[in-house]
Each structure stands twice: as C-alpha cells, then as structure tokens.
Amino acid sequence: MSLIELQRDLRNWLIREDRWAARRLGDDAAPGLRVYLNNYRAQLVACLEDSFARTRDWLGDAAFRQAVIAHIERVPPSSWTLDAYSRDFPATLTLLYPDDAEVAELAWIDCALGEAFVGPDAPAADAAMLGDVDWDSATLLFTPTLDVGELSTNAPAIWSALAAGEVPPAVEPLPEAGAILVWRQEQISRFRAIDQVERQALLAARAGLSFAAMCDGIVAALGQERGIALAGQLLGQWLADGLITKIEEKAVSI
C-alpha cells in the first residue's frame, strides 16, 4: 500500500468510519483506529462547543450535542486549520431547525464574533480628516473584520441576554427582513442590527461604489431630504463604529 492510499484509508475511516478502509489497514490496527476516531471527534466537538457558547445556552446541552454530532457526520473538516471548521455549523442548524430561524442566526453571531476577534488589524479612519475630502470622488474602505449577515428574528437581543446571564426574550420575527453587522473595534468584537437600507448602502460602498453614488441610491429609495440626511447619519455611524479605515479620492477622468 502506498502512502497516499494509506492516508486516504485513514481519512475515510475518520470521516465515515469506513469498515473497508479499516480492513485494508490491517486487523492489528483496529484498537489504534478506534483511538484516532475518538480523538478526531472529540477535537471537533470541543471546537464547536468553544465557538458556539450562546447557541448552546439557547438550545441546551443535549440538543446542542445532537446538533454537533449531526454536523460532524455531515461536514468533515476541509481546511488546514481547525478554526475554520465552525463556519458551516449555522448552515447545519438551518437544516436541523427549519422553523426556528433564531437558532442559525445565533450561531452566525457566535461564529462571526469569533472570526472578527482573530481578524487582521486595520486602524480606523480619523474623523478629523473629513473636512478635506472631495465627496464627489471619495470611496470608503472598511475594516477587514466587517461581516454582514441576514436577520429575520430578534436573535441579537437573545444573544445579548444570554451573554449577560439574563433570561432571554421570547423569539420574535422581525416585521421585515433585516441584517446584522459584526466587526472588531479596539480589540472587542461587536455587533449591531441594521435595516435593509443601511445593508444595501454598506454593501455597495464596500464593493467600491463611490460615496456620491451611494448617496444617489439612498435618495432614489427615500427621497431627496430623507436620503441626504440618512447618508450623512450612516457616514457618522460608520466612523463612530470604527468601520471605515480609509477614505480614498479617485481621480475623475474628463
């Protein structure tokens, strides 16, 4: 048996408990394979337990453990680092709890907060520089720890109550689809629920749309007076949150 065949059989044993793969490894390997399998699963369980504390608080230990087992059976690790294994767990919870959207949303918050905490550093832009900016050609650059998720329930309020050791509120659906921001500011992972107008504006600006064009989009949606006022409010909020790292002025060709 070649090394690559040996590695494939061991992987198939760990991922699927493949009996044929174990048989090819030899009868003498059986005790050791069981140890490897237990260690493999224990590491994945520990990874998910550490990454989804508030989700576990909400589901309870027994239900959370069953979800973890289902995830391990459904999704094998695919990255060189175990830290990445938690990323697909919210999708598994969506399948397991199709009528309880808050479960996957809590898991998304848990996961995004953890990833923001270990994300790359990027100093926030200084608000004092705003007076010199040509806003007709300005584009906004955002912190690399920023993530944006969908939101259909009051999961942020539930997460906050669980984190504070308080009795969480009952699940409530949002009157209309919302979104949530997660980022790191001053070495602290933070989140904030937002509406679809801010979500669309933020995604457009992060994709490279100029600030002026972003404002035009808000004005088209809300009207001149409300749109201009909101654009200014969003810029101030993003600066206060430390979301913006740089404001670039691109040369306009004539």
Rank of each mutant, 00 (worst) to 15 (best):
G242I: 01
Q187C: 10
L44E: 01
G236H: 09
L95R: 10
P156K: 13
M214E: 01
P173N: 10
T145K: 03
L174P: 02
F191Y: 12
R226Y: 12
H71N: 10
D195Y: 02
T55D: 09
T139V: 15
Q233I: 07
L235M: 15
D134F: 09
A221K: 11
A104T: 06
V68R: 00
G32A: 14
R56M: 11
S51G: 06
D100G: 01
D50H: 10
E249Y: 05
N39G: 12
T139C: 12
S86V: 01
T245W: 04
S210K: 09
G178W: 01
G232C: 06
C111F: 07
R56E: 07
A107Q: 02
P98R: 04
M1F: 15
P98V: 06
A62I: 14
R206Y: 04
A22Y: 07
A213M: 11
W159F: 08
A63L: 15
L130P: 03
T153S: 06
R206I: 00
V219T: 05
A125Q: 02
L203S: 15
R34I: 14
W58Q: 03
E186M: 10
L10S: 04
E5G: 06
W108A: 00
R34L: 10
L10C: 05
D99R: 09
I72G: 00
L202E: 02
W108Y: 12
V197F: 04
D18L: 08
T153E: 05
R65F: 12
A220V: 02
M129K: 14
V35Q: 11
W13H: 08
A220H: 09
P123N: 08
D83Q: 13
D134L: 05
A22I: 14
L14K: 09
I188L: 12
F142I: 03
P144N: 12
D99A: 07
D241S: 12
V103F: 05
Q224M: 11
A63G: 06
P77N: 14
R74C: 09
P156Y: 08
L151C: 02
G60L: 05
A122E: 11
Q224P: 02
A128M: 15
A62R: 11
R226K: 14
E225A: 08
Q237P: 08
L82W: 10
L146R: 01
R34S: 07
A42Y: 13
A70I: 12
A193S: 15
A212G: 05
G223V: 13
G242M: 01
A104E: 06
Y36W: 13
L151T: 00
L230R: 13
A70F: 05
L239F: 08
A240P: 10
R24D: 04
E248I: 03
C215L: 05
R24T: 07
L151Q: 02
N154H: 09
T92K: 02
K246H: 15
W80Q: 13
M129I: 09
N12K: 12
F142W: 07
W13C: 00
V182Y: 03
A125N: 01
P169W: 15
R74Y: 13
L202Y: 03
A46E: 07
E150F: 04
E198W: 01
